[in-house]
Amino acid sequence: MATTDKLLLAFQHFDAANKEDPNTEEYQGRTYPKEVLYGIRMTERLNEFDPNASEALRLTARCQHICRWEIPRESYDMTREGYLRWRQDLKKFHAEKASEILAAVGYDQDTIKKVCFLLEKKQLKKNADTQALEDTICLVFLEYYFEPFAHKHPEQKTIDILQKTWRKMSDKGHDAALKLPLSKFSTDLVSKALSNE
């Protein structure tokens, strides 16, 4: 799909908001605000996974974690109920932030509604764009964030997370995941998780 000037402008605004992230990450010799790097990774992975993605989906991928640090996990009870409430509040927060930026850039209400629909992960397994977004999120997690996570947690918890991740993905997502350049450590854990599914 062609890249419009408006899309690039929205990306610039999303990235500018995420540059305020106090958390940083080193990657290939550079230091990035964490959510800026995440947004870039989401865009790159979506472009590869779904080259014909709609403009709304491309916008959503870039702003999926917009200003996430403003609602830290630690501000909620460290229970499953607290985690689920945090996730729900984040979806609404991301939708509000994205809507403000998209309106300022000049997007119409129809596009803004589509982005909010996707940010709230509605109709997973039923809506093609929601599923493509979820597949992209899972692929980015597996490629860049899974191994650091695995080193911090017991193997059984890691396998459980992998199995939950796998269930959210489509067959196309599974195929893409099995082609990721994972380390032997990660590949072995994926194999264990899938053999127990």
Rank of each mutant, 00 (worst) to 15 (best):
A2W: 03
T3Y: 13
D5L: 14
L7Y: 03
L7Q: 08
L7G: 00
L8F: 01
A10Y: 01
Q12V: 00
F14V: 09
F14W: 04
A17S: 07
A17T: 06
N18V: 09
K19W: 14
P22W: 12
T24G: 14
E25I: 12
Q28P: 04
G29N: 09
K34E: 10
E35I: 03
E35N: 10
V36W: 00
V36T: 06
V36P: 01
I40M: 13
R41D: 06
M42N: 04
T43C: 13
N47W: 10
N52Y: 04
N52H: 11
A53N: 02
S54T: 15
A56L: 04
L57P: 01
L59E: 02
T60P: 00
R62E: 05
C63I: 02
Q64Y: 10
H65E: 01
H65N: 08
C67M: 13
R68H: 11
I71V: 13
E74T: 14
Y76E: 12
D77M: 02
D77L: 11
T79N: 05
T79K: 10
G82Q: 02
Q88Y: 11
D89M: 07
K91L: 07
F93H: 09
E96K: 15
E96G: 03
E100S: 09
I101H: 07
L102F: 12
A104E: 15
Y107W: 14
D108I: 04
Q109I: 05
D110Y: 10
T111D: 07
K113H: 12
K114Q: 15
K114V: 00
L119W: 01
E120S: 08
K122L: 14
Q123T: 03
L124S: 04
K126L: 15
N127A: 08
N127D: 15
N127W: 12
N127V: 07
A128I: 12
T130Y: 02
Q131N: 05
L133W: 00
L133Y: 01
D135A: 13
D135E: 06
E143V: 02
Y144R: 08
E147L: 11
A150N: 02
K152D: 15
Q156R: 12
Q156I: 10
T158P: 01
T158F: 07
T158G: 03
T158V: 15
I159A: 04
Q163I: 06
Q163N: 11
K164C: 05
K164F: 10
R167T: 08
K168M: 13
M169S: 07
S170Q: 06
S170E: 06
D171M: 12
D171R: 13
K172W: 00
K172A: 14
K172S: 11
G173R: 01
D175V: 13
A177G: 05
L178H: 11
K179G: 04
P181K: 05
P181M: 04
F185E: 15
T187V: 04
S191P: 00
S191R: 13
K192I: 05
L194T: 01
L194S: 03
L194M: 13
L194F: 03
N196I: 05
